[in-house]
Computed example of a mutant assay.
Amino acid sequence: MQTTPLPIVDAHQHFWNLDRNRHPWLSDPEPIPFRYGSYAALRRNYLPADYRRDTARHRIAATVHVEAEFEPARPVAETDWLTALAAAEGLPSACVAQAWLDRDDVADVLAAQAARPLVRGIRHKPRSAATPDAARRGAPGSMDCPVWRGGYALLARHGLSFDLQTPWWHMDAAAALAIDFPDTPIIINHAALPSDRSAEGLAAWRAGLATAARAPNVALKISGLGLPGQDWRYDANGPVIRDAIAIFGPERCLFASNFPVDSLIGSYDAIVDGFLRAIADRPEAEQRLLLHDNAVRVYRL
């Protein structure tokens, strides 16, 4: 399949240099539980030359680097490394930086991150339940936690957005957060992780997305749709893409690759081709929104 002539902003990708920097999940000997299973193939440097090789068939206009769980004691060091990388290599175009919203140093870290021109937003994964049945509101470290919210409240002061990675069974808390802090844009990562592809699981996922979509300051990144032990397949992921766009609308959805993480389940070409197939029946203006314009607006590129 030939690629679309439309330019793409990849709204979620990662770089790392394990020779220079420590990412505990990649650098430490003991692996962590991971939703795709083994991630041994990711324990290698991934830099702009690697990304350009993987994306060679496509018109990548810009990329947004999302914090890659860099050494948590030095969150600003990742941003400084990325700034030097962008100056030398032209990528990334912007970044979503790390900050721990419930840590004592959050005010200083946010001020330092916001002072870096590459930074557009922050990601800190709130505490989440492992299953829908275990989900409870109000847990320490969750989106309801007063300490966590105290840090979150500082984002608006710096004009920062928030990238939210949490499963769909916490979309009620996400909606409440968006309503309580209307000046802070939220971008939900990885389509709220629809890992259960049963009819019941997808129905519950759609209901969760609909809850979050009621808040006008919430957008959705359509990425990270892989399933453990399976190659990226259109028959599994195409309906998810179409449902996500139907719920949030083409004005609030963004394409993203999650590379190189999603290289574990598919090539860049397979992921882009599947997304293009899912949106092929939409007008070109909407395709442009999904592939490029929404990310330019949301991340102020």
Rank of each mutant, 00 (worst) to 15 (best):
T63S: 15
V64S: 05
H65N: 05
V66F: 05
E67V: 05
E67C: 13
E67G: 13
A68F: 08
A68V: 08
F70I: 11
E71Q: 15
P72G: 09
P72F: 01
P72I: 01
P72D: 13
A73C: 07
R74V: 11
P75F: 02
V76Y: 01
V76W: 00
A77M: 14
E78V: 13
E78N: 10
E78Q: 09
E78S: 13
L82E: 02
L82H: 02
A84C: 11
A86C: 10
A86L: 10
A86K: 04
G90E: 09
P92H: 02
P92M: 04
P92D: 01
S93C: 08
S93P: 07
A94I: 03
A94R: 14
A97N: 04
Q98G: 09
Q98R: 12
Q98W: 11
A99Q: 13
A99L: 06
W100H: 15
D102K: 08
R103D: 13
D104R: 10
D104I: 00
D104C: 03
D104M: 01
D105E: 09
D105G: 09
D105V: 05
D108R: 15
V109D: 00
L110Y: 11
L110W: 13
A112M: 03
Q113M: 05
Q113V: 04
Q113E: 07
Q113I: 01
A114M: 12
A115K: 11
R116H: 09
P117C: 01
P117I: 00
P117Y: 02
L118E: 01
R120K: 07
R120L: 03
K125R: 09
K125M: 13
R127N: 12
R127K: 12
R127S: 14
R127H: 09
S128A: 13
S128I: 01
S128T: 06
A129F: 00
A130E: 14
T131D: 04
T131Q: 06
P132V: 11
P132L: 02
P132K: 00
D133Y: 06
D133K: 03
D133V: 07
A134I: 00
A135T: 09
A135H: 11
A135C: 04
R136Q: 02
G138L: 01
G141R: 03
